[in-house]
Design a binder for these strands. Sequence first.
DNA 1: GTGGCGTTAGTCGAAATCGACTGATAGTTT
DNA 2: AAACTATCAGTCGATTTCGACTAACGCCAC
Lengths: 185, 185
Amino acid sequence: MPRRALDNPLVLAVLGLLLEGPSHPYQMLADLQKRGSSRLNRGTLYDIVDAVAAAGWIAPEDRSRAGNRPERTVYAVTPSGLTELRRRLDEQIRTPEREFSRFLGAVSYLGALGAEGAADALTERAERLSSRIAADREVLTSIVSSGVARLHMIEGEYALAVAQAELDWVTTVVAEIRAGELTWP
Amino acid sequence: MPRRALDNPLVLAVLGLLLEGPSHPYQMLADLQKRGSSRLNRGTLYDIVDAVAAAGWIAPEDRSRAGNRPERTVYAVTPSGLTELRRRLDEQIRTPEREFSRFLGAVSYLGALGAEGAADALTERAERLSSRIAADREVLTSIVSSGVARLHMIEGEYALAVAQAELDWVTTVVAEIRAGELTWP
DNA sequence: GTGGCGTTAGTCGAAATCGACTGATAGTTT
DNA sequence: AAACTATCAGTCGATTTCGACTAACGCCAC
């Protein structure tokens, strides 16, 4: 009985997805990937779904098959699963955690690139970030104006806000390096 | 020969730490933890160090022991390790990745908490965030004014900037919910 | 001086995660 | 119609990560 597996952040994602309607793992994978979740392994998802089912938070609803393809097991959230979802949601929103992104890990050792190298790399990041932000913003507004409730796009707004802050920071740092205000010891 | 292990973000951290001087895993662990890195397992660190050493990017320098305690193997970066560090640094700074924090995962399903519940939880987050930001800011300025080069604290500045952006976003969303501008469908 | 407690340092079996593989269907070339 | 490719769905052995354990030291109190 996998116990530690229930710590996985995917648990929340699975519960959340199933809240919008019953689904099977393969489908969930596609949904999660469309919502941008990079690096997410199929095998892992099946393991998590099994663990969540063992915990009683979701239950198989149906074992349909289309044609002679492998059976697909369709799951739905149970009442206790709904409670658990709310509990986790509440807790994870209330308590901010220090998360360590790849980028944060990298800037820690910015010194090793030298002033030039650092300014260079940061400049490219700024460019990429800024075009990604523009694209995302466009997608977001077009979806919302097509009638989808803003609440369902709220995580997109958050991501944009954070990305914009990062962009601002990167551009000011580049400026400081170029102006000689941030010096290499 | 562990190959995938070299993808681990800890690899960069190990290389970066050793750049500041030779050290042994247990010491690195303490350093990394002091720099705020939460969730970081000792066993994992030893595994990574082994893998990095097998890749030839670091090499044992010394096997000293204090008293009759377990030997400690002191590692130092090799020339090829320095190259690799620069390569990774450059790449990770240049290419922004979509990272998925716990919080982002949670806001995606904010709906499940209801307007009241959401506003409540977000309010608490805002409070905690804001006091943490104040504390961090103070620590940062005191360190810099004590003579440590600003470049070595740059990741702290970045973290603060992002945290502040998150705080701003959370407070505006709370205000919108309370004002009935963000509605529950 | 010995009993307890916190720190130093590392090891190792168990648990979680990954990704390559299977094997079927549907559509498109050749 | 055989051959090729893409998508659907899941399984399973190999790899990675975890955390409980060992064990020695230093220090303080009783």
